[in-house]
């Protein structure tokens, strides 16, 4: 076999999947369900990160993620209380909600590193809050029901506040050196 034949063809970058049209929720209940799922999943992801960082002995960042998980969790609880829900209602079936696989406020699962520093964690949080802000802004623009539009605008404003809070927090933590990810030792053998 020739070297050329052996070479794998990298899968061609697929033309980006057609963006699902953003269907505005038709009721407050539907809207608040979306908001609740966003907060819940964001909280779960931060908790997952916190666990991972604890296992890697990166306790400072673990604590930070734990705090973020708590904050998002509180937001979720708040929605549950306001709506008088005892469990998370299912998302309306068959309706496109957000583009991409995950809710806009959820930090991407692969954007963490065992040597990451608070600055990195806050960058992740900032991006998440910004995505949430943008999402509610878009919802407000496409909403056809007045109550839903008002609620979207309210949450957009709330997320904007969060963005500002995270920015203020970021200003207080040192920026990492360029070699922050350098580990002189190789990974460990396990099983």
């Amino acid at each position: 076999m020739t070297a050329a034949a052996r070479k794998t063809t990298k899968p061609a970058r697929r033309p980006a999947a057609r963006k699902p049209a953003l269907n505005a929720p038709r009721t407050i209940r539907e809207f608040m369900t979306l908001a609740l799922v966003m907060e819940t999943e964001a909280s779960q992801r931060y908790a997952e990160f916190a666990d991972a960082m604890e296992v890697c002995n990166n306790l400072e960042v673990a604590a930070l993620f734990r705090k973020m998980a708590d904050i998002e969790g509180r937001h979720a609880t708040q929605i549950m209380t306001e709506m008088g829900w005892s469990e998370v209602p299912p998302l309306p079936p068959g309706r496109a909600t957000w583009e991409g696989f995950e809710a806009p406020e959820t930090a991407p699962g692969d954007e963490v590193h065992y040597l990451m520093q608070p600055w990195h964690a806050l960058q992740l949080a900032l991006a998440s809050e910004q995505r949430a802000e943008a999402f509610f802004g878009r919802l407000a623009r496409v909403a056809t029901v007045a109550t839903v539009r008002r609620a979207a605008l309210e949450l957009e404003a709330e997320e904007r506040e969060h963005v500002e809070l995270v920015k203020a927090w970021l200003a207080k933590v040192p920026k990492p050196d360029s070699d922050w990810a350098v580990d002189p030792d190789p990974p460990s053998y396990t099983d």
Binding site: E48, F49, D51, A52, M53, E54, V55, C56, N58, G109, D110, E111, V112, H113, Y114, M116, T190
Partner: peptide
């Protein structure tokens, strides 16, 4: 808590 690397898809 999993022993996987942070960022691993398995989480």
């Amino acid at each position: 808590k999993p022993i996987w690397c942070p960022g691993c898809g398995d989480y």
